[in-house]
Structures are given as structure tokens and as C-alpha cells.
Amino acid sequence: MFDSKLITLIVSVITIAPIIAILIEKWKFKNNTNINRDKNYYYKCIFITYENYSCLQHVYNTTSCGEKCSYAYLTEILNLLKSAKSSISMCMYHLSLQQIFQEIINAKLRGVSIRIITDREMEFNSGSKISRLRQEGVEIKTQSIAELTGYLHHKFCLIDKNYDSQIMWFGSLNLTLQGICSNWDNIVITNNNDIILRFSNAFENLWTDM
């Protein structure tokens, strides 16, 4: 006959093993998805609502009605582009704002490496600045015709990645007048290294595949 202690031990192991396996999987998931809580990083959330519709004229007149004004938000994005010293890697569904176009050209003129990934169909949308950026020598890629099973719908921008000054924004905002003034949209600005690394890997994979 089997020793009763041995039987108890075997039953206990069989009972506990699935629990241990679940705990291990939870640890792996947490380890793979946890964002670095480094106190040196920061983030800022910007939300555009129906209230920003009244800011349309502010964008035209380059005047701000306050910190939540669309022109103030646009200025913040422009300042991020102005801060670029090494590179701008942008993935944007639609880009039609003249101010953004000009700031990208300014960055190119001061020697910043610029790469843009955009949607193939939206490149030819009315008001799009992509064709003009191509004419100015900016590197731009889109999905191939064979890959047109969906939109290239990303909206993020990496600035000076791999440098101490690296920063990025991501969210739902297209760089359009409608996006900055009329839609319900958002962007998050951050210098968090983990987030930048993940978006950077995604950008490089897209750039290589296109």
C-alpha cells in the first residue's frame, strides 16, 4: 500500500500546480505590459471637445482664449516639432494643417531627419500636405495597393528617439483644422522611455515593411 503521507503530497501537488501556473502567467503578463514608473518621466493629456469649436477663429488669428484653446494646443504641438534636434518619425492618417507643414519643412532645413508614414488614399485627400512634403524631399511611405484592406489609421509622432531629449505624442488627433477645433479628440504627450520604445518599434516595423 502507498504511504498516506505520499498520497497526500501527490494530491496537494496536483491541486496546487494549476494555481502556480496561473500565477506564473499573470506575472509574465504584468512583466510584459507594465509601464516603467520612473519618476523622471511625465505625461500630459489633451482633450478636444465641442467647446473648441469656438476656437476656430483663434487658430486663424493666432490668438489664444486660454490654456484649453485649440490654438494653445496647436502651439504646443508646433513647439514639440520645433524642439526636434535629431529626428521626427511621424505616423499620421491625415495631415492638412499649414502650420504643421511649415514646421516640418523648418525642421528639415535645420538638418533634422524626417520620416512620415501615412495612409495611401488620404495622401490625395483635399487639403492634404503630404504631396507637397514629398516635393520638398521629405521621406514618406504609405501602404502598398496590395495592402489596401484597411486604413493606415495611426496618429503618433516620435521626436529625437534614442536621445535624452526624446518625447512623443499619440492619440486620436489628426493634424487637421477639423481635428484641432471640431472633433472630440485626444492626445497624450510623454517622455516615458517604455512607451517611446514600443511606439518606436512599431514605427520601424511599419517603415521596413512598406
Rank of each mutant, 00 (worst) to 15 (best):
V59L: 10
T190I: 02
V59S: 08
R134M: 11
S70Y: 11
T208L: 12
I35C: 01
I117F: 12
S4L: 08
A107V: 05
E121S: 09
E103P: 07
I189W: 03
I196H: 02
E123G: 08
F124M: 15
E147Q: 14
S126C: 09
Y60N: 10
N192D: 02
K68Q: 09
D164V: 07
N125Y: 09
Y93D: 09
L80F: 04
Y50I: 12
T63S: 15
N31D: 04
I22H: 09
T176F: 00
L78K: 11
S126P: 11
I117K: 07
I145Q: 15
S200A: 06
F2Y: 06
Y93T: 07
S182E: 13
Q98S: 13
S64R: 10
V188C: 15
Q166C: 03
V188Y: 03
N31S: 03
L23D: 14
Y53G: 11
E67V: 15
I196V: 06
Y73E: 03
C69T: 03
F199Q: 07
K141V: 07
E123K: 11
L80V: 06
I10A: 06
A202E: 15
F2M: 03
E67G: 09
N32W: 06
L80N: 03
C157F: 02
P18F: 14
L148E: 12
G179F: 03
I16W: 10
I117D: 05
Y60Q: 08
L74D: 11
I105H: 02
T33F: 12
F170P: 11
R198D: 05
F2Q: 06
G111R: 14
W207C: 00
T176N: 00
K26V: 02
Y60W: 09
K85S: 09
T190N: 04
N32D: 12
T33E: 14
K85H: 14
S83M: 11
F47C: 05
H58P: 00
E136K: 04
Q99A: 10
I145G: 11
I20Q: 05
E67P: 14
L81G: 04
L173I: 12
D194R: 13
I24A: 09
T176L: 02
E103N: 06
N191R: 01
I116V: 12
T15H: 14
E25H: 12
L175I: 03
K39L: 12
C45Q: 10
S70P: 05
I130G: 00
I130E: 00
C181Y: 00
I100M: 09
I116Q: 06
F2I: 07
W207H: 00
I7G: 00
K68V: 04
E204D: 10
L197E: 13
G171V: 15
W184F: 08
L158M: 10
C55G: 00
H154P: 05
I104M: 07
Q143W: 05
I22Y: 10
N32V: 01
S165W: 00
K82W: 09
Q178P: 04
R120I: 04
N205F: 00
A72R: 12
D185V: 03
D185H: 07
N162H: 05
N186H: 10
W27D: 01
T63V: 15
R110H: 10
T15F: 11
I22G: 01
F47T: 08
K141L: 07
L74A: 03
N31G: 01
I145R: 13
I140Y: 05
N40L: 01
I22A: 08
Q143K: 13
C45N: 10
I159V: 13
Y41K: 02
L6C: 01
L175E: 07
T49I: 07
Q98H: 08
C69S: 06
K68A: 09
F101Q: 13
E121D: 14
